[in-house]
């Protein structure tokens, strides 16, 4: 081996559920979930906006919770449920209500933040659906506009000024069956 060549690293096997399908792969210890999703599984819908956990474009759901996949070690996905934007759309091409609401509300301009936004909104909807946001009764109260804004604080958007994204989320909560 020449001194400049890259050392062979130990590979680790991880098994997790990706958009409802069980997958297994061998990865380096330092591989982050974003790279695994984009480069190994070729799911390009999850975007890399900053690679340092600031912009939220790479948001995916890990066991239902939104995480910045650029900071999440892929090895930690072992045994977990991972959902990406590709998992939202129906097999027949029907948009998930979250996606549909974003489209109908005019919340998509360049669209680079949209995948992350959609995943963040979905996780919020799920929280309220299942009542996990508050102990006790399910969906007694819809989230306020300010609560929605607060929830989406980790996702940056440069095009829309957020207004229509917040509108899209608000409309979803207003619907009877928001899932």
């Amino acid at each position: 081996m020449k001194k400049n060549s890259i050392k062979k690293e130990t590979l680790h096997e991880v098994t997790f559920t990706l958009n409802g399908k069980k997958v297994t792969c061998k990865i380096k210890g330092a591989t982050v979930l974003l790279d695994l999703i984009r480069d190994v599984f070729d799911l390009k819908g999850t975007k890399s906006g900053c690679n340092e956990g600031e912009c939220g474009a790479c948001t995916v759901l890990v066991n239902g919770a939104p995480v910045n996949s650029c900071l999440y070690l892929a090895i930690n996905a072992n045994g977990k449920q991972i959902e990406t934007i590709e998992g939202l759309i129906g097999h027949d091409g029907t948009l998930h209500p979250v996606q549909d609401s974003l489209v109908q509300s005019g919340a998509v301009q360049c669209g680079f933040c949209t995948s992350g936004m959609a995943m963040a909104i979905k996780s919020m909807v799920d929280l309220y659906e299942t009542g996990q946001h508050v102990p006790g009764d399910i969906r007694t109260e819809l989230p306020s506009r300010d609560e929605i804004k607060k929830y989406l604080e980790g996702n940056l958007c440069r095009c829309t000024g957020y207004v229509k994204i917040i509108d899209a989320a608000e409309k979803l909560f207003a619907k009877e069956d928001c899932r």
Partner: peptide, 8 residues
Amino acid sequence: ANIRASGK
């Protein structure tokens, strides 16, 4: 918008 919102 649907294409963009679906990650495609």
